[in-house]
């Protein structure tokens, strides 16, 4: 059922012959490039298994969807049994949950938090507001499409999604990570200029560094 749904990716394909961003060549920063060797693949698979089973979510309630993250974390739904736990600082986290609409003021902070997280890192968009603006489609203060500004790996639809939906979304994200398909962070590095351009288009007083380490 999930395969039949259209893939939500509002991003155009990379034009032919375009150069990747300069930082991409920095091996220490960039994740692993696919290697042809068999044992490399096996190691990669093991790494992905570790990554998938220990998701550290940044405790940043960006929107109203974060009210359902607390039931998810506490006794009734208990996300910790899947190895998902929250971390209070972006340095320790590798999953960023955008819980619902994102005002432009918050978008600036979110970009900064996202860039400070160590890669590989993933973005989960929660609720219809992140997908197409939701019920705030005509609001002057919120962004309408999250994947223009951050590389989204998983959308969970609903307004707001129930904790069960969140659990299923996380399970899908884990599957994606195990298969090695959740590569939004690489996309962000490769097309940093494109993302920056989009971000600067709606954040008028841009005063962030080129890249927040």
């Amino acid at each position: 059922m999930r395969d039949e749904l259209p893939v939500l990716h509002g991003v155009p394909p990379i034009p032919e012959g375009s150069q990747p961003h300069a930082r991409c060549q920095d091996e220490c920063f960039l994740g692993e490039k696919p290697e042809p060797l068999k044992y490399r693949e096996a190691i990669q698979r093991i790494k992905n298994w570790f990554r998938a089973n220990s998701l550290h979510v940044l405790a940043y309630g960006t929107g109203c969807g974060s009210i359902e993250l607390r039931p998810l974390g506490t006794a009734r739904f208990d996300m910790e049994r899947f190895g998902i736990s929250t971390r209070p600082t972006p340095r320790h986290a590798n999953v960023l949950i955008i819980s619902g609409y994102l005002s432009i003021k918050t978008l600036k902070r979110v970009i900064r938090s996202y860039e400070q997280m160590p890669s590989p890192k993933w973005v989960v968009g929660l609720g219809s507001c992140t997908i197409n603006g939701g019920m705030y489609w005509d609001s002057y203060a919120t962004m309408k499409q999250l994947d223009l500004y951050l590389p989204v790996d998983m959308y969970i639809s609903g307004c707001m999604p129930r904790p069960e939906a969140l659990i299923e979304g996380f399970a899908a994200l884990m599957d994606k990570i195990k298969k090695g398909e959740a590569n939004g962070y690489l996309d962000y590095l490769e097309r940093l200029d494109w993302y920056r351009e989009n971000q600067k288009k709606i954040i008028h007083d841009w005063d962030l560094p080129d890249y927040s380490w």
């Binding site: 220490c28 049994r81 590989p120």
Partner: peptide, 25 residues
């Protein structure tokens, strides 16, 4: 706290995961 809680080996996974992260800090 009334939860099921993570598996007992969860700290090993966490340790492995942080080893497999990359940083530029």
């Amino acid at each position: 706290q009334g939860r099921i809680g993570p598996p007992v080996y969860q700290p090993f996974i966490d340790l492995g995961k942080v080893l497999f992260l990359r940083t530029g800090t």
